[in-house]
Design a protein around this nucleic acid. Structure first.
Lengths: 157, 157
DNA sequence: TACCCCAAGTTGTACTCTGCAACCAGCGAG
DNA sequence: CTCGCTGGTTGCAGAGTACAACTTGGGGTA
């Protein structure tokens, strides 16, 4: 289907649908995330996941990535540390900085939650033809890679 | 591309990508929604939108649709009513029920916020070929239409 | 070196959103 | 009429968040 064959209306409707569905998803994810893993909120999980990818990052980085206030990150990290999931190490190069690392327990819990989330997603996506799955994933990546506007143009990734 | 040509790994990776990207979106939407329209939270906006579609629904319906506690809905509706955006009318058939309706002001505000959100999405999706847009929208609808699991199997839509 | 400004993080405070539990009020069946 | 169920509200508590003020350390510049 070429662009020329498609009326503007169709694209407009698609934009609205994307908007509506993405919003619906956001609402649901928020509502259900807490219930799935009471001991690891969506934010904590996300922060933990980020730490696994970029082991040894700073609290400020997290704040920038997730458009959170540094105080929020500070408290979240405190909670995670209290729970024994992350470690704060002083940065030898800059005494102001705390380098954050996952602990073994943190890694374990994260893997566990990731697995259960993955299972849920897999179940949810079970009926999808693989090629649709791949395309859907690509669209989402493309959507989230976008920068520069009021609707999520943060520093993530 | 037929399913038979695609290794399981590819589909698995796609599932993980969908999971990761959807989660990322949820986090961002949450972070940015409040900043865009301070006077209309994401939940309020969603409820208002729902009321526009199904004018004259009950608070319990909203709670069921959005997997929210009825107390939460009650308070949200109270706030919206205080703001003059919705009206509670007694149901003549059942005195327990309050039928919710958008007011003129509510309709106006909703249209305004919708427009600004739409503009943001449109900007974000500006570079997309229309046929990709349509396919993306279809995937999202399909994803959100799913029911039955711990990851959002609520009654919505 | 001394001073100044900026950056990283913490803490105090306040507000919103949320769920749970307890409660009230109206409906309908026996 | 009484009992149980449903729709809704309210009290309470906890999580998440932002903003502002503050502390500490780094890096220039005079």
């Amino acid at each position: 289907m070429a662009a020329a064959e498609m009326p503007d209306d169709t694209a407009d409707t698609a934009v609205e649908t994307v908007q509506r569905e993405m919003t619906a998803f956001a609402r649901r994810a928020r509502a259900s995330a807490g219930r799935m893993h009471p001991e690891l909120s969506l934010v904590s999980y996300t922060l933990l996941g980020h730490l696994e990818e970029t082991d040894g990052c700073r609290a400020t980085d997290l704040a920038a990535h997730y458009a959170l206030d540094k105080s929020t990150v500070s408290r979240q990290v405190s909670a995670l540390e209290r729970a024994g999931l992350v470690e704060r190490r002083p940065d030898p190069d800059d005494q102001r900085v705390q380098v954050l690392h996952l602990t073994e327990a943190g890694r374990r819990i994260l893997a566990q939650v990731t697995e259960s989330r993955r299972a849920a997603f897999r179940e949810r996506l079970a009926g999808w033809p693989p090629e649709d799955l791949v395309r859907f994933a690509a669209y989402l990546e493309r959507y989230n890679a976008w920068r520069g506007g009021p609707l999520g143009g943060d520093e993530d990734r």
